[in-house]
């Protein structure tokens, strides 16, 4: 028992120490940038995974929350001349507030219909933010100045946000909530007949998900320093990509989205240098292959492989006994 208790503490401690040392080991700003982008995507994937992976509500509109977070930070400085870092506080709150009506509307629908409704809502946000020029500066977007000239402060903030998102999701999944989510995903009617108010619990999955997405959106604004509606509300580059990232890493696993994000960013940087503009094509082909041959993603299939292995062991033992 003591050893497992140690293990629980030892692994995160090692990870944290390594993460703190990393930017001082890897000094090239380009690689630091890649790691920050991985953290951003890992956080966004973790947010999507809470609603889409654990609760089974496949959302095609998560760019809405990401974009709202980014725009809350951007509009603060654009209209009020307040530091965009306050967006880290405001963005998640706005995303959550907007998520409530979205949830109330979309949770009336199931499966593919839910997916389509969220897709439509995400697109509505993009179009409104493009056309409401007086508020959002339209398609010209918002350009700010970076606060820090080195990447190291951004690295630590991104790491912190990623850590917070993992802790939130981990706590929720290990509590009773997690079981409720999975029961809704596996069979909504059965869950309802067991007395789980499904709409309320889907909302409990959506709100933290929107919170995290808004938080990372606000950070994105501060880090990249330029946003426009076609980037942060993009259907294909954010909403759909985050699903593919999670699919690749492993749906409904804690670290799956982070693995998927690391692969996505690493592949796209690698292919960008090697194949030019064909990087998304290569990623698309790999995603198709993963869905075809590893339908539960890399982490998800590790588990089944292990189980297969153990079962075979047991069979061998039984056979030996006979």
């Amino acid at each position: 028992m003591i050893s497992t208790g140690y293990k629980k503490l030892v692994v995160p401690t090692i990870v944290i120490i390594m993460a703190i040392a990393l930017p001082f080991v890897i000094k090239a700003p380009y690689f630091q940038h890649i790691i920050i982008m991985i953290f951003i995507w890992a956080t966004l994937g973790t947010a999507w995974n809470l609603l889409g992976g654990y609760a089974g509500q496949v959302s095609f509109g998560h760019a809405a929350f990401f974009g709202l977070g980014a725009y809350s930070a951007g509009l603060l400085i654009f209209h009020l001349n307040v530091s965009p870092w306050w967006g880290l506080a405001l963005g998640p709150v706005i995303s959550m507030v907007v998520a409530i009506p979205i949830g109330l509307v979309c949770f009336r629908l199931r499966g593919p219909y839910f997916a389509l409704a969220t897709l439509a809502l995400g697109e509505i946000f993009r179009l409104v933010f493009t056309n409401w020029v007086s508020l959002t500066n339209g398609a010209q977007g918002i350009l700010i100045l970076n606060t820090f000239s080195t990447k190291i402060p951004y690295y630590f903030i991104a790491f912190l946000i990623w850590g917070i998102s993992l802790i939130i999701v981990d706590r929720m999944i290990k509590s009773k909530l997690g079981y409720y989510f999975v029961s809704i995903r596996e069979d909504q009617d059965a869950a309802e007949s067991l007395g789980i108010p499904t709409t309320r619990y889907k909302m409990f999955a959506l709100l933290p998900s929107a919170f995290i997405a808004g938080l990372v959106g606000a950070f994105y604004m501060n880090y990249i320093a330029f946003i426009d509606p076609h980037v942060v509300f993009s259907l294909s580059d954010i909403s759909v990509m985050v699903i593919l990232v999670v699919m690749m890493g492993g749906v409904a696993t804690l670290l799956g989205p982070s693995i998927g994000a690391a692969i996505y960013i690493a592949l796209s940087e690698l292919f960008r240098a090697w194949l030019g503009s064909a990087n998304v094509l290569a990623f698309g082909i790999i995603v198709c292959l993963v869905i075809l041959f590893m339908p539960n993603g890399i982490i998800g299939e590790l588990g089944t492989l292990k189980r297969l292995f153990i079962r075979q062991d047991k069979k061998a033992m039984v056979a030996g006994g006979n």
Binding site: I243, L244, S277, A278, V280, G284, V287
Partner: peptide
Amino acid sequence: LVEVDSILPENQVLLTVGIMLVLTETMR
């Protein structure tokens, strides 16, 4: 994919997303 078992029932839909990505990027 019809015979493949997975956590999310929407696997075929996600595959069409992948196909969309491949077609779009090939044309690009």
